[in-house]
Design a protein around this nucleic acid. Structure first.
Lengths: 136, 136
DNA sequence: AAGTTTATGCAACTGAGTTGCAAACTATTC
DNA sequence: GAATAGTTTGCAACTCAGTTGCATAAACTT
């Protein structure tokens, strides 16, 4: 639990039992998960607590959210160094077969030449297709 | 009404009074609009009819939908030649000040080198920031 | 005109996300 | 270590976008 605790405190999040559990579950995932996915990993759980836990994690940049177009926002762990600035962002991939949403952490979002006087804050880029697992 | 009719029939959509009205409203817009935005442009209207009208338009590639992360899907007219294939897609911009969502029709989505065995179907790219109107 | 298909309108529902409030817990101060 | 203040958790209840079922209305077919 020491590791989990450290990760939380290093992001200025008080390590409660609940938060440790949620962080552990998030750490196990190979794909991004939604609030209701998370809810189903608990036998008895309160959606609101999980919701607020995710919000806290996101505000403190422990996790980032992905709007993959499925109607439910997904969440995935940030890298240790991540500050969620435009230069930290990567492309996400949604597989239309297995319905999983992956971080393509190694693929940075390409820079865009916006029209004059447009300033940029954030970019969301989701590629839809079939992942390598589902391509035979 | 002849023009509107032609646009509908050329996309294999039967030109009803309702659909003409909706298409006219969509044509007037400078920014993408949501179902509830559309609903408010009618004095008396049925959300479901508008919803199905938009679905029909989208299926027939008269309009495309944009998930800008606000929680409500936005819609905007496609160009005449658009088939909504990856090569037809453009970047979208969401202004965090005026809350408008624009098509940056001249900015194609940059191509991405996906990992091996990933195939691509579609890309959604939304840049958030401040538009030129709102930047003083 | 009768029958078939398609579009529209109403009611009612789902599911994600959210707020308010009270109880439980944690941290702080004496 | 008890009193207090601040934070977290759990429950109820709500909002709002999107959606389905079904009945009526309108448009096509022969």
């Amino acid at each position: 639990m020491k590791d989990t605790d450290d990760k939380l405190t290093s992001r200025n999040i008080k390590p409660t039992a609940m938060r440790e559990l949620v962080l552990d579950i998030l750490t196990e995932q190979t794909a991004a998960i939604s609030l209701s996915d998370l809810e189903q990993k608990f036998h008895k759980s309160d959606k609101v607590t999980l919701y607020r836990t995710l919000k806290t994690f996101e505000e403190n940049k422990l996790i980032h959210s992905i709007d993959d177009g499925t109607g439910a926002v997904k969440y995935a762990l940030c890298k240790e160094s991540c500050q969620c600035h435009p230069e930290d962002l990567h492309v996400h991939f949604f597989c239309i077969k297995c319905q999983h949403t992956f971080c393509l952490s190694d693929i940075p979002i390409p820079s865009i030449n916006l029209p004059v006087n447009f300033s940029i804050e954030n970019i969301n880029m989701v590629v839809k297709g079939v992942c390598s697992n589902c391509n035979e």
